[in-house]
């Protein structure tokens, strides 16, 4: 079987298009690259949607944590502590079993116990908590002069927030937020190892890499392939966030623009 045929058969296997059966023996390098690459679709799906939806909740949480109202502040603080203080792995497990028991209550909750929605919700809440903390830190370090200037121009309330506070907060938080985004994509690999079943073997990249490693008992091929895919993904993310960073900093003189510094990635 030529590599092109393999690509046609397994290129979209992770979303259920193409050959139903996974290869069982005589794995070729092409099969491994194709299937693991196909699994990346799920990683990108989880990462992108969680990042975009989490961004809005994170802004709300950050503003909430800086709020003067005690109730809102405490609620935001607890939300952040809950999701940052416990392992994502346990959160996945807990959420999965919670959704399972909800399923018994009413069939409305059925899709929650499937990975595409349930895991997405967990990732959304998790990234909202982590980036909320980042945004909160940035919110506190907005230069006082900027806010005073906004007052002097007669801006207040929503228009002050939209035009001054929020863009400045994003600008200050952006390098840290880039790291958070990279993290999030790495964290998506946990989904199918934490209770959420890979229905009809439609799994993510690590799921397939693990499948090959189990079948061939040779970790030295599938995991480096996976690593290669993730390095490419990380580089693309960095480039994309770098563009946004340029735009956020475009009004500043060249020497004051905050450089993107990449820091190490850790498990959450």
């Amino acid at each position: 079987m030529s590599c092109w045929e393999t690509l046609m058969d397994y290129g979209l296997r992770s979303v259920g298009i193409g050959e139903r059966l996974l290869p069982r023996d005589n794995f070729t390098l092409c099969q491994q690259v194709t299937l693991i690459g196909s699994g990346m679709i799920w990683n990108i799906y989880f990462g992108t949607l969680a990042l975009i939806s989490g961004f809005f909740l994170a802004t709300a949480v950050a503003v909430g944590k800086a709020s003067n109202l005690r109730v809102i502040r405490k609620a935001s603080e607890w939300f952040i502590f809950l999701f940052r203080g416990s392992p994502l792995f346990i959160q996945f497990f807990f959420a999965y079993f919670l959704f399972l028991s909800l399923k018994g209550v009413s069939p409305i909750f059925d899709p929650l116990s499937a990975a595409w929605l349930g895991a997405l919700i967990v990732l959304f809440l998790n990234t909202a908590a982590y980036s909320g903390e980042i945004f909160y830190g940035a919110l506190l370090s907005i230069p006082k002069g900027d806010l005073e200037a906004a007052d002097a121009y007669g801006l207040s309330g929503w228009s002050k927030f939209r035009r001054i506070t929020w863009p400045t907060m994003l600008r200050l938080a952006w390098p840290a937020y880039t790291n958070e985004a990279i993290f999030l994509f790495h964290a998506t690999t946990l989904v199918f190892f934490s209770g959420f079943p890979a229905w009809r073997q439609k799994g993510d990249a690590l799921y397939y890499a693990n499948y090959f490693a189990d079948k061939t008992f040779n970790p030295f091929v599938p995991y480096p392939i996976l690593a290669g895919f993730f390095i490419v993904l990380t580089l693309m993310l960095v480039a994309l966030f770098g563009l946004a960073n340029r735009r956020l900093n475009r009004h500043l003189p060249k020497d004051r623009q905050s450089k993107m510094r990449l820091r190490m990635n850790l498990i959450r």
Binding site: T189, L206, P219, I231
Partner: peptide, 20 residues
């Protein structure tokens, strides 16, 4: 090397790799 790659991939990799 440890940067840029999901960590659980490392965990899954090293256990078999070290054993072998």
């Amino acid at each position: 090397v440890v940067r840029g790659v999901p960590d659980i991939a490392f965990f899954l990799f090293f256990v078999i790799a070290l054993d072998q």
